[in-house]
């Protein structure tokens, strides 16, 4: 599901490229994996549907909404939270969450 959300952000150009450039390493390799260049399987919302049972249309809609609004991620669990909102939309590469 995470990968499919990222796929939408990458494919539809909805992520924060400035943040990725300044604060991440190895994004290109990961992006290629998401896009299926590494194993031939693009990690699309349709791809994840069989695994999660969550309809592809829902993932796509969520990813688009997430990628176009200033979004705060309030995640259950420890250590996994995304500092929001002030300047970011669709941030990719947040360690611990998207990897």
């Amino acid at each position: 599901m995470v990968l499919a959300i990222a796929h939408v952000w990458i494919a539809e150009d909805l992520y924060d490229k400035d943040y990725v450039a300044r604060r991440t390493a190895g994004f290109e390799k990961w992006r290629d994996y998401i896009l299926g260049k590494e194993d031939g399987a693009a990690k699309t919302p349709e791809w994840q549907e069989a695994e999660t049972g969550v309809p592809a249309k829902d993932i796509r809609a969520l990813a688009r909404q997430w990628g176009t609004k200033k979004t705060y991620l309030a995640a259950g669990g420890l250590t996994v939270s995304e500092p929001p909102a002030e300047r970011r939309q669709g941030r990719i590469g947040h360690a611990g969450w998207s990897a």
Partner: peptide
């Protein structure tokens, strides 16, 4: 504070 001032959307993930 940042959340309440600036967020347009909150995703409650795993919760």
């Amino acid at each position: 504070e940042d959340c309440l001032k600036n967020a347009e959307m909150i995703v409650f993930w795993s919760s």
